[in-house]
């Protein structure tokens, strides 16, 4: 693997990690607001939007930090991808049902659900896929790996 590709992997890790880290902040500060955003999608039963609003931002914070710092990167990538697929399913059903609601994604205040958001998530998913198929693990501090690909 050439040097460019190795650094590209690290850059994608930092960008994707930063996206999840940034997205988690507002939700951690105001979980009640995030719970209402989830409820607006009208897909969850039994009031579990609160449970998700409590847990999900912290999961985003930890996997985002994991990607940036190189901690348990494989696990972070799988969770990241699963979340992005889930987000896209939620947004797609909202669009199909004609809901004109706020995304509640945490990246941009007041952003509405729409095709752009789905495409944006597909770009992030592409990044996650590149990380998933990476051959070399560099600057991953736990589990410990070599700093170079020899």
């Amino acid at each position: 693997m050439n040097r460019f590709n190795r650094y590209l992997i690290v850059v994608i890790r930092i960008v994707l990690g930063s996206v999840f880290l940034w997205a988690s902040f507002d939700k951690i500060i105001d979980p009640a607001k995030f719970a209402r955003s989830i409820a607006n999608y009208h897909v969850l039963p039994f009031g579990i939007e609160n449970t998700i609003a409590i847990v999900l931002p912290w999961l985003e914070l930890f996997i985002g930090s994991g990607l940036i710092l190189g901690v348990m990167v494989d696990g972070s990538i799988v969770i990241t991808s699963a979340l992005l697929v889930l987000f896209n399913l939620m947004i797609a059903q909202a669009i199909l049902r004609g809901f004109n609601i706020e995304c509640g994604c945490g990246l941009k205040e007041g952003q509405l659900v729409g095709i752009e958001k789905i495409l944006e998530n597909f770009v992030f998913l592409g990044g996650a896929y590149i990380l998933y198929i990476r051959e070399t693990k560099i600057l991953e501090i736990f589990p410990k790996t070599n700093l170079s690909d020899n």
Partner: peptide, 26 residues
Amino acid sequence: LYLTISFITSFVINLSRTDTLPIFAD
């Protein structure tokens, strides 16, 4: 491990907040 850490941290932090969110929405 990620899920366990997230569940534990989030519930502990939520319980310690002044504006604790009920686990299930009314």
